[in-house]
Design a protein around this nucleic acid. Sequence first.
DNA 1: CAGAAGATCATCT
DNA 2: GATGATCTTCTGT
Length: 203
Amino acid sequence: MNRGPAALPLPREFFERSALEVARDVIGCLLVHDTDEGRVVGVVIEAEAYSQEDPASHAFRGRTPRNAPMFEAPGRAYVYFTYGMHYCFNAVTDPEGRAGAVLLRAVEPIEGIDLMRARRAGVRDRDLARGPARLTQAFAIGREQNRADLIASPLFMCPGERLSNRAVEATPRIGLGRLQDGRPWRFAVRGSPWVSGPVRPKG
DNA sequence: CAGAAGATCATCT
DNA sequence: GATGATCTTCTGT
């Protein structure tokens, strides 16, 4: 199905809010990446908020070389490498100087599916972008995209179809680190086959 | 400088 | 449900 040309990118102000608000509102928006291989587009299905006060956030213990992008301009990308082999993609949130980011955990592919299949050879379509590191593979997001300006670059986000509030479920954070106040932190489209799975508290 | 943990995934039982 | 892969980043000494 062709939804026509991608809309304008989400404006900077969209990201210049708390990670919690952005994580909630980014559900249903589109993630787009244009490369010389072609364009891939997906609907954001699942996202996680990482606020400065969150012990699970890379920024919790202050600024370091790695997490510096989280303290910088909202609307840029924060891409980090983990487990020796995976990249994860965040949109930086909050006004500059306050650290915040939203991790994209899953999108539903809607354009460039064959390209995603090529980049994720051998997996079922359902697993093309279901999971933060699978998503970066399908979208060819890596080191080069760290600090990319999502308002004006081949990698951007734009508004999608509106989803009713009831279509979005929020998971309260419990038992992770020291912050156990039950605030929501993970948002996902309820019942979508692209949701990566329920949150299981560690420890 | 060593050690441990890590915002994960694929694969196996 | 458990485990190995693989290496960066941070922390403590």
